[in-house]
Simulated assay, not measured.
Amino acid sequence: MNYENIIITAENNIVTITINRPTKLNALNKKTIQELHDAFDFIEKDSDIRAIVLTGSGGKAFVAGADIAEFSDFSITEGTQLAQKGQELLFDFIENLKTPIIAAVNGFALGGGLELAMACHFRIASDNAKMGLPEVSLGVIPGYGGTQRLPQLIGKGRAMEMILTAGMIPADEAYRAGLVNHVVPQAELLDFCYGIAQRIVKNSPLAIGQAIKAVNANFKPGIDGFKVEIESFGNCFGTVDFKEGTTAFLEKRKADFKGK
């Protein structure tokens, strides 16, 4: 598939998606959101792909926010539809993807950029990264899940402070708050992410998909996460991967998972 605003490369069962709008600091516009959805949907159907790294081009920004010019004159109805469609098409979509996504946060991750990173399964930041949700300084609030995912990750009080002050925090503070898992020098960011991705690739992709489903269930209103875990646990017993994993353990060899 051909894309205008993203670049896709693949190696060793790992795909890298790079948002490529450097003159706009990789800001999210409608076309980029659609292209990201299409790319993630296509990759999810490829059984050879076991992990995804998402990053931004250039050294300045992961994603510096949404493209404000696209919605500055929207009505209430249009604004509501913008948030709803964006969440369904991309942010909720990737959160529930069975293939794990690592956000390699290089530089600014602001507004929709931080919301995109938070929708990924976890985040690694470069030491020059800065993160924030500045929407209230524009007379609006985060609309792509930021008011929900940020408190889940760092707690209500810290999230309230970040959102209400519209301030940015540096990478080390994001690490202490639990917003990112690791902070590494910018030059080492992608290699560090690939190292984690390679560890993921060694495991059963079916079990990983079930684990993602079970963890996410805990944050969905009206869903009993323990029940989902029990069902997901049981589902694993019907897979070839389970038989291979347990047999390999008993035979004291490395498992060769097929994702079946």
Rank of each mutant, 00 (worst) to 15 (best):
A119Y: 07
A255H: 02
V215H: 13
P205L: 00
V180I: 11
K156D: 09
I169M: 12
R21I: 02
A69M: 00
N203V: 00
I230G: 05
P221Q: 11
F219A: 12
D256M: 02
D73T: 02
G178M: 03
T147C: 08
P142V: 05
I43F: 14
T239L: 10
L25R: 11
L82R: 11
T99M: 04
R50C: 07
N20M: 07
G209S: 08
T147V: 06
G222Q: 12
F226R: 05
G59E: 10
G86R: 05
P151C: 00
Q34Y: 10
Q198S: 04
I196Q: 12
T16Q: 09
D92Q: 11
N106E: 09
L206E: 02
A187Y: 03
G225Y: 06
G112A: 15
L150Q: 12
F233R: 06
E229V: 06
G56V: 05
A119C: 12
Q81D: 15
T32R: 04
A177M: 07
G79L: 10
I154Y: 01
M160V: 01
S72K: 04
Q148I: 07
K227P: 02
E173K: 10
N13S: 14
T147W: 04
A64Y: 07
A104Q: 14
M162T: 05
N181M: 00
A214F: 01
R158E: 15
F192G: 11
I17L: 13
D46I: 00
L82Y: 12
V183W: 12
K45E: 08
E95Q: 13
S137I: 00
L89M: 01
